[in-house]
Write a protein that binds this DNA or RNA. Structure first.
Length: 434
RNA sequence: GGAGAGAUGGCCGAGCGGUUUAAGGCGGCGGUCUUGAAAACCGUUGAGUGAAAGCUCCGGGGGUUCGAAUCCCUCUCUCUCCGCCA
């Protein structure tokens, strides 16, 4: 959430930022509400002060055994006036908050200009063989064909038991998924200094408001009907909300968390996009990285977090590139975002496998996540950051496609072998499992 | 699901209609003392808003009253006992 005072005092700067995002924001009505609200507040406060003073007086008089009838009568009408003003004030305040919750974050100065995805800026590339992605000596099959031949993913039966955009992993496919989760968590906890969490997979509305998923993006979420819960679209939501409404001591910062969770997304409005395969599912697994930092450190920590996610791909030997999202492609809550895109041979394209963002104080303000700088009188908002480290389903896509062999088998990356009973290759399974 | 108890400042805990501008303790910070430290003693120590005076905040929301942490309604959460259950 944008600071109310900032909106009031830096209106032009805010509008310029919104134009960079391609958002058309109308502030006239909001600023009028704000002026009215402050006017009402200035009216009600002296009345409250008067009531406090006179009421205390009445108490003293009564204690002394004296009458206070006129004062009581007078305060009765003051009380009515206060009640009326308070209810107006509350309505104005609520209207302001509702509006503020719909204003996206300000893009950081280093975010490139641009209207959409096509203007994102490539930052760097990596591949096991230099910078360019490796080419296979035969025509690569899409991962769903690779998986079907090996009998490790069953999309048809998943559709039967749940519907479109679900997958049923089988045998080595299920093992591969589990191996990747464990490999990623081990890397981040043992080498990158993150603490592992296993949070609730459903959260309340308040948590969704903190991260920016609500009120604007309800259509993207699955809501549980008998209970006020939402299925999490990412571990970012439960983990960021851990310190909701808390004031942290400065010495605790920065805090690094990693969490595996399934993620649930409606994918409304993505009809016809990635309809086959694992790329776009209603439910997928992800290992998430979340940081809470002081304001001065967040951009450094953002760079480090992105490198931590990249490391997963390096160890797996998967080619990727990092792009900086332009202002027009930036998510609602983000001040700055790097996407990591992995090479998908059958599509001859890089596809998003991680999104690493710095939200600065945007989410912290919505969730009131603060810290007390050492020696300072005032509290300040922390900065929150997160990134996928990585999306597991899409990592499976990359492994099946990049490491497929002409005979239909798939080489298992060395770092995963200890997690898969030492197997070096995924072979076609025969018989009973089918 | 049934019965009961509770939610107060970083933590513990008093207050149950009017010097509560929330007692007291612990913890934190500063000081006295000390070669240094501990102990003891003294002081200080919640958040938001505002230039300030002030105003608001005792789980959330609503009500009663001149006046609510305190009384009433409601919701949420926690605990105890019983039942059921992985």
């Amino acid at each position: 959430m944008i600071d109310l005072k900032f909106v009031r005092e830096n209106t032009e700067e805010l509008l310029a930022s919104m134009r960079r995002r391609g958002e058309d924001v109308e502030l006239g009505e909001f600023l009028a509400l704000d002026a009215k609200r402050r006017e009402v507040q200035q009216e009600v406060e002296p009345l409250r002060r008067k009531r406090n003073e006179v009421s205390e007086n009445i108490g003293r008089l009564k204690k002394a055994g004296q009458k206070a009838e006129e004062l009581v009568a007078e305060m009765r009408s003051v009380g009515d006036a206060i009640t009326a003003l308070e209810s107006t004030h509350r309505e104005l305040e609520e209207a302001q908050r509702e509006f503020l919750l719909t204003i996206p974050n300000l893009p950081h100065a280093t975010v490139p200009d641009g209207k959409d995805e096509s203007e994102n800026k490539e930052i760097r590339r990596w591949s096991p063989h230099g910078e360019e992605p490796p080419t296979l000596s035969f025509e690569p099959k899409p991962h769903w064909d690779v998986a079907e031949y090996l009998d490790i993913i069953d999309f048809n039966r998943a559709a039967k038991i749940a519907g479109a955009r679900f997958a049923l992993l089988k045998g080595v496919g299920a093992q591969l998924e589990r191996a990747l989760i464990n490999f990623m968590l081990d890397l981040h906890t043992r080498e990158h200094g993150y603490t592992e969490l296993l949070p609730p997979f459903m959260v309340n509305q308040t948590s969704m408001i903190t991260t920016g998923n609500l009120p604007k993006f309800e259509d993207d979420l699955f809501k549980v009907e008998n209970g006020a819960y939402y299925l999490i679209p990412t571990a970012e939501v439960p983990v960021t909300n851990i310190y909701q409404d808390e004031i942290l001591p400065e010495e605790r910062l920065p805090i690094y968390y990693t969490a595996y969770t399934p993620c649930f997304r409606r994918e409304a409005g993505s009809y016809g996009k990635d309809t086959r395969g694992l790329i776009r599912q209603h439910q997928f697994n992800k290992v998430e990285l979340v940081k809470f930092t002081g304001p001065a450190d967040s951009h450094n920590e953002h760079e480090k977090l992105t490198r931590d996610a990249e490391e997963v791909l390096k160890r797996l030997g998967l080619a990727y590139r990092v792009v900086a999202l332009c202002a027009g492609d930036l998510g609602f809550a983000a001040a700055k975002t790097y996407d990591i895109e992995v090479w998908v041979p059958s599509q001859k394209k890089y596809r998003e496998i991680s999104s690493c963002s710095n939200y600065e104080e945007f989410q912290a303000r919505r969730g009131s996540i603060r810290f007390k700088p050492k020696g300072a009188k005032k509290t300040d908002f922390v900065h929150t950051l997160n990134g996928s480290g990585l999306a597991v389903g899409r990592t499976v896509v990359a492994i099946l496609e990049n490491f497929q062999q002409q005979d239909g088998t798939v080489i298992i990356p060395e770092v995963l072998r200890p997690y898969m009973g030492g197997a070096e290759r995924i072979l076609r399974s025969e018989g009973r499992g089918r």
